[in-house]
């Protein structure tokens, strides 16, 4: 259970992206960073995952247990993280091989089965659908067994039905971990998060969420009301459509 604390200003080169961030992301639950494209939410994801980029934090990012974050974060992105030349087991076990450890193929098969890919272990990613590929990426995140998991718009490229199913699956298999979801989809934020923030240039604003347990039913009136309210909040950011 690794809680994270992020405070300060996020810069992109010489320009400030988000000022006055003050995020307390508790351990063992899902925290969501919601924002429109270009607000810098993916940069925050890369920052937490310890990946390089043009971003820079003037402030602190720390785990509340005092240990360094490096090596304790797994990230799942929108796509492109699978090895096209390796089968699914090879894709799931690449972390162990990159670290020079013995890959646990039995566990990889069990995890692939857990995400619903039993029987497809010998396939290569190009023989899978977009949703199945993200299932492989999810199995790999589980295989890495990191304290902190960053999901950077992991289901953005999927169709709506597949996306809802993947949200349910991710909520089930990642339960109990410290998860940071980065998304521009209000429904995703409302369905999955225990804490959520709306990101904007002036900082992060905590959002009120329905009381129902995660993953929240997409048909529930509270979910839909919260989604409508959030959509209303996001709308002024975009230029008004005048016929």
């Amino acid at each position: 259970m690794t809680a994270l604390r992020l405070r300060g200003d996020l810069w992109m080169g010489a320009a400030p992206l988000i000022r006055g961030l003050a995020l307390e992301m508790p351990g063992g639950v899902w925290s969501c960073l919601l924002g429109p494209s270009g607000v810098g939410k993916s940069s925050l994801g890369r920052l937490i995952a310890g990946l390089p980029g043009p971003h820079r934090l003037e402030g602190v990012l720390e785990a509340c247990d005092g240990q360094p974050l490096a090596g304790r974060v797994a990230m799942m992105a929108q796509g492109g993280q699978l090895l096209p030349w390796a089968d699914l087991v090879g894709n799931v076990t690449i972390g162990a091989r990159l670290r020079g450890a013995r890959p646990d193929t039995a566990r990889a098969r069990a995890l692939l089965a857990e995400v619903g890919l039993a029987g497809l272990e010998a396939r290569r990613p190009d023989a899978l659908s977009g949703g199945q590929r993200q299932r492989v990426a999810l199995a790999r995140v589980l295989m890495e067994d990191c304290a902190v998991v960053v999901l950077d718009e992991p289901f953005s490229a999927l169709d709506t039905g597949t996306r809802l199913a993947m949200q349910d699956l991710a909520a089930r298999v990642l339960k109990g971990r410290t998860v940071i979801v980065i998304t521009h989809d209000p429904l995703e934020a409302i369905r999955l998060s225990d804490r959520a923030w709306l990101l904007g240039p002036a900082g992060a604003e905590a959002l009120a969420l329905p009381d129902a347990p995660v993953p929240r039913d997409w048909r529930a009136p509270q979910t839909l009301t919260a989604q409508a309210a959030l959509l209303g909040r996001l709308l002024p950011v975009a230029p008004a459509c005048a016929g």
Partner: peptide
């Protein structure tokens, strides 16, 4: 590809 480079970093590959 950049995503695989990220993977190598996160998985602390030599």
């Amino acid at each position: 590809p950049a995503p695989l480079d990220d993977l190598a970093r996160m998985m602390r590959a030599t």
